[in-house]
Design a protein around this nucleic acid. Sequence first.
DNA 1: ACTAGGTCCTGGTTGC
DNA 2: TGCAACCAGGACCTAG
Length: 290
Amino acid sequence: MPELPEVETVKRGLESKLRGRKVVAVKVLRPDSVGYPSVKQFAKELVGHKFREIVRRGKYLVFELDQGAALGAHLRMSGRLLVLKPGGEAKSRVRAEHVRVRMELDDGNVFLFEDMRVFGRLWYVPSGTAPNDVISGLADLGVEPLSEEFTPKYLQDGLRNKKGPIKSVLLDQTLIAGIGNIYADESLHLAGINPQRPANTLTMPELTKLVARVKEVLARAIEKRGSTLRNYTDSDGVNGNYQSLAHVYGREGENCRKCKHSIVRVKIAGRSAHFCPQCQPAAANKVAGK
DNA sequence: ACTAGGTCCTGGTTGC
DNA sequence: TGCAACCAGGACCTAG
């Protein structure tokens, strides 16, 4: 499931393949995959545009096009964006029945949006229109966690009146853009904070540690080209490597890498949360007076 | 203003 | 063995 590091990896892989390329034909195979405008307009308007820069915001990608237009994309759970040479589907393990949008390029390659679960979206942003006005959710995003804006003070202000579990707050894209279930669990583990802790009870030292760990985990995952859990691959169809470094995610019943205690999985706000009860005690361990 | 929970969607896994 | 029920989760929506 692509989160910030996976989306960043996809962006880096696509840049050199798309820059300067022109769209010569568009086929929408699944209408649900187009968020704006109509399917007919999407296919018609996109043709003839050239790709320029790619910008990532949280888990969104914005492909800047010529004439001030843009193409927005969100991969959600199972989306992939791939540039393939003719006949390259097999190598990248593309399943034809999951291809939702197919864009032919002027160099003979094809730019595919594959999305088994159809949660992902593409948006065409006409020239003279701001991406924020067309791409749903984009305008409401919070800070980039790898930017200087994401500080312990920012986090403290953001969760001052939040009584819900810290895990849920980390997943709130309007506060921090790009953290998903995997990296939320990993960051909390490395910071030694229990995912169920009411957000507004975290101390400044804990917030400082958490911010540092979030940045570390995301940066490390980008270095490793993301995590491959279920169906994520990069734009070449290649798996990422971060999952083998995971401390808690997907490791229920296995031993904690720090203390050997068994990793536990619980439900928080309908999502599974993985943690080590010993390294991440339910109450702040200052109570024990040690 | 806030939070909890349902919804979308499909394929893989589980359980009877 | 076969098949139905359940599970995964990002963002959005509704209800309370």
